[in-house]
């Protein structure tokens, strides 16, 4: 008869301990890169933050004393990401609505879902080359070549699958009873989607949109082919049709410069980029928590 007390030395309990420890070690290893990366960037980049950074143009490499600021790149990233959002959010949410609400699971919607998954896996540089071939090299946009507009289009290709997928999945999570309730009081499909299902799925859709924006804001490869880079302030609407700087391309360009001042500028740009993506994510979580609370009053 085995004793009921815990046997420290039985092979079963030793094996249990070993595996618990092993999985703990794995989880620590997997989180280490994130911790190191964020701390390293915060330390290296955080030290360089000055008010001038946000207001000045970057100086051309070579002047080792002062690299200037990142204002054009910061504004450029905002503009390019906004263009990408303006294109991909309506199209993506609309497509997601079709897949979740209107399609009846036939071969057409299966094909679309498959296509969206493939698009999500397309390397970002391909999106850049595609827009380069379609818009930049053909000068189809009023004769302009590299432009912020083209950059936004390239990023919108990357955002689109995320937005479609999260809209589709978010809507599918809305219980059918809610749709029946709305249709049962004589609402049309259109009213039901607009007034009942979309608001119920708002949280998951918003999460998907922000994830898409965060991914797009950090992309470099597509922008090298489309928006290129610019050292100069963005002064007006017309600048959309010319080369436009962005944080990620600024990091790419300046981190490889042999001059210390430019390297420092790249670090501070990394700091700003990581911080803004992080804060957008945190903001979304707070927003989600707040909407959740009001919903369950």
């Amino acid at each position: 008869m085995n004793s009921l007390f815990y046997q420290k030395n039985s092979s079963r309990n030793i094996g249990d301990k070993v595996f618990t420890t092993l999985s703990l070690i794995c989880v620590v290893i997997s989180i280490l890169p994130l911790i190191f990366l964020v701390t390293y960037i915060l330390i290296k980049g955080g030290a360089q933050i000055t008010p001038d950074l946000f207001t000045l143009e970057p100086n051309p490499p070579g002047d080792d004393l002062d690299a200037g600021g990142i204002n054009p790149a910061l504004i450029g990233t905002l503009i390019i990401t906004s263009i990408a959002s303006i294109i991909s959010i309506p199209v993506g949410v609309g497509g997601g609505i079709y897949l979740a609400e209107y399609s009846k699971g036939g071969s057409f919607s299966r094909f679309i879902r498959f296509g969206v998954n493939v698009l999500a896996g397309v390397p970002s540089i391909i999106a850049g080359v595609f827009i380069y071939a379609l818009i930049v090299s053909t000068k189809i946009l009023f004769g302009s070549m590299y432009s912020g507009l083209a950059g936004g289009m390239a990023l919108s290709i990357l955002m689109l699958p995320t937005v479609i997928k999260t809209t589709d999945e978010g809507l599918k999570l809305v219980p059918n009873e809610l749709r029946y309730a709305s249709l049962g009081v004589g609402a049309s499909m259109y009213t039901t989607i607009l007034k009942i299902t979309l608001p119920s799925a708002f949280r998951s859709i918003a999460t998907g949109v922000v994830l898409g924006i965060a991914r797009a804001a950090g992309e470099t490869a597509p922008l090298i082919f489309t928006a290129l880079f610019s050292y100069y302030y963005i002064t007006g609407f017309g600048d959309l049709f010319y080369e436009m700087g962005s944080l990620s391309v600024l990091i790419y360009n300046f981190a490889l410069e042999p001059y210390d001042a430019q390297n420092k500028l790249a670090w501070s740009a990394s700091f700003i980029l990581v911080l803004s993506i992080l804060s957008v994510n945190i903001f979304l979580r707070i927003l989600a928590a707040l909407t959740e609370k009001t919903k369950r009053v």
Binding site: P175, E177, L178, Y180, A181, S182, L183, G184, V185, G186, A187, S188, T191, K195, I196, P199, S200, K295
Partner: peptide
């Protein structure tokens, strides 16, 4: 048809809105 033949379901399924809006919704869209 559904406007003239209403339905109450097995599981209570109010809209995720206020009590007032739950009732006003159907009337307003009609």
């Amino acid at each position: 048809v559904r406007r003239r033949i209403g339905m109450v379901f097995q599981q209570p399924n109010p809209f995720p809105k206020s009590i007032y809006e739950n009732i006003a919704f159907g009337a307003r869209i009609n």
